[in-house]
Design a protein around this nucleic acid. Structure first.
Lengths: 337, 337
DNA sequence: ATTGGAGAGGTAATCGGTTACTTGTATTAT
DNA sequence: ATAATACAAGTAACCGATTACCTCTCCAAT
């Protein structure tokens, strides 16, 4: 492949001039010379080598988006807007999918440092509570190596982040079910059993405020995929006094729960109301369309990119932006008679 | 950040030795020296610079996966296996999403060449028939610049590819509907109206062989997303003699069609049978679960990586592998009375 | 006539690694 | 005792760019 040296030789100039012309650097060059260089580059089918450019500039103009899953629309819809926005700003996006495996997260972090990405938008992979520590360590490692970081989907200290107030979302959803007359409300949680889990807290607080005692049997956990929701609903509906409504902490689990209920011959919303989290096209097409606590996907992406750019190109103070959820009422909930 | 020069100084050796130790090159080094180097590297928090490595090696150990959509599970499920397999072989994956915009495909191709990826797994973005030409040009550009390429999702000459025999898939699906007694079968196509579209040919051939004349009114096109299917079904059901069964060319369109039919008050499968393409988790959770022509996602990914590795690391003869579809019968079709 | 500065372009160090080739020493074979 | 060889390590060119600094002309100003 042709290099700027080849072009320089062919055009009879030095590489400095070639570089200047090809990059539009502010340095006077005669029109005639410029043309010779452009022509030579074209003839040689010259392709700039970004590897070399990156090495010289100590900038790669690459940003990584590190997420737990790529088959979950929640993440891909965010990914799409992030990639779009970064592209407009001249950055390429590395999409890194951990498949919810914490070791892969660490592997990726090492690789991203080695590749000298300019920034990382980080949504932690957390299946077991201990993963929390690994997440924090990975984040720290990135920052220690001078990489700008923005996080979303969880809490960290001292890092720019987009924080979605899921506590209030869960609170609102639970209250909605209470208003409909439900008293036994189940909660389908993810595996990442921590202490300060906001969705669960929102759910519990709403119940407490309504003077309803919390029944541990009504809270079950599964993996964050459809089968997790499927299994959870079966567990919930087989306890002594099964719930009349259920909240699931993400989109796929809600859909899995819906399917599980149907397979058990339970009518939704007739016998069981279901509320999911994370709106996506899917929630609309299932039967019945799901009532969900929507997280503002597009905004999350927009804000994440903004925060990252502030760090890469501006003052690097870390900042936190809070976004609110919104309850989208569709047809998966009904009043308790 | 620390470089091998820093390590060399700290350990009192030359950079050559550092490089050898850190990369496990087959060259004798005294155990004592090795230890000094390892320790120095650790103390300095050394992180290898893959940019520099790539420049020196003229290999990036990066492969790009260039696809039309990232919010369609068909692609993300393939992406997941590809990324997994490539990772095992020591390659990082660049996931590039064109959002079905042909200009983005070209932009990406230019960028990938500039980034000197070792290979590209390419699924063409094709919305209008003319895009075909752009796809071919992009492919040629990659190859001209010495980048290994594997294509899937369409036909190209002289490139390794995974070819899914969708002609037979469509043939089989149509015959299935014919056996159920349907005579008026609608076809929901994508926008990419070409001449030699295999799914459509399979559909038409099955009808012809059954002695049924093709009614152009039964063939409509839309975009490849849910709303495309949604609109198409409305069109189809409003013609003079509407179909009693429909085949849609991809997963999202089938789901959109299902939703569209429901919204029109049409019972599926009672009044209308629907068959989709591209199996994915979604097809199972909609109501009724969709009968689909399944494309072997995992195999597509596996084979694509195999073919690419053959080119990058072995003899670079281009090769074509044909995969078969499979009709998965669920509950969205019923016999015509 | 001399000086100063703008215009046009070149030289070579640098980014952080890899590696072909060379060197010096210790061991073994003859 | 000496040559041959293995071992252990170093030197410096190279990968493909960028860019600070330098040089040479030419022309206007004094």
């Amino acid at each position: 492949m042709a290099t700027i040296y080849d072009i320089a030789k062919k055009a009879g100039v030095s590489v400095a001039t070639v570089s200047r012309v090809l990059n539009g650097v502010d340095h006077p060059v005669r029109e005639e010379t410029r043309k010779k260089i452009i022509d030579a580059a074209k003839e040689l089918g010259y392709r700039p080598n970004k590897i070399a450019k990156s090495l010289a500039h100590r900038r790669t103009f690459t940003v990584a988006l590190l997420i737990p899953s790529i088959t979950n629309n929640f993440y891909t819809e965010i990914a799409e807007v992030i990639e779009q926005k970064l592209g407009e700003k001249g950055y390429s996006t590395y999409l890194c999918n951990t498949q919810r495996m914490i070791e892969k997260e660490t592997q990726y972090v090492d690789d991203l440092i080695a590749r000298r990405v300019d920034g990382v938008i980080f949504s932690p992979t957390r299946v077991k509570p201990e993963d929390n520590l690994v997440n924090a360590r990975n984040l720290e490692e990135l920052r220690k190596n001078g990489i700008a970081v923005v996080a979303f989907g969880s809490h960290f200290s001292n890092v720019s982040q987009v924080y979605i107030n899921t506590y209030e979302g869960a609170l609102e959803a639970t209250r909605y079910l209470l208003e409909l007359g439900h008293r036994r409300i189940g909660f389908i949680d993810g595996l990442e059993a921590g202490t300060r889990k906001s969705r669960r807290r929102g759910y519990m607080d709403a119940l407490k405020m309504a003077g309803i005692e919390i029944d541990a049997n009504l809270i079950v956990s599964g993996n964050l995929e459809m089968d997790g929701g499927y299994e959870c609903v079966r567990k919930l509906m087989q306890i002594e006094k099964p719930p009349t409504a259920i909240i699931a902490v993400n989109n796929l689990m809600a859909i899995g729960a819906l399917k599980g209920a149907k397979d058990m011959g339970i009518d939704v919303p007739g016998e069981l109301s279901i509320i999911g989290f994370d709106d996506s096209k899917l929630s609309e097409v299932v039967e019945p369309p799901l009532t969900v606590v929507k997280q503002p996907l597009k905004e999350i992406g927009d804000v994440a990119v903004e925060l990252l750019m502030e760090q890469i190109e501006g003052e690097n103070a870390s900042r936190m932006v809070e976004l609110k959820t919104q309850l989208i009422i569709r047809a998966s909930c009904s009043g308790k008679k």
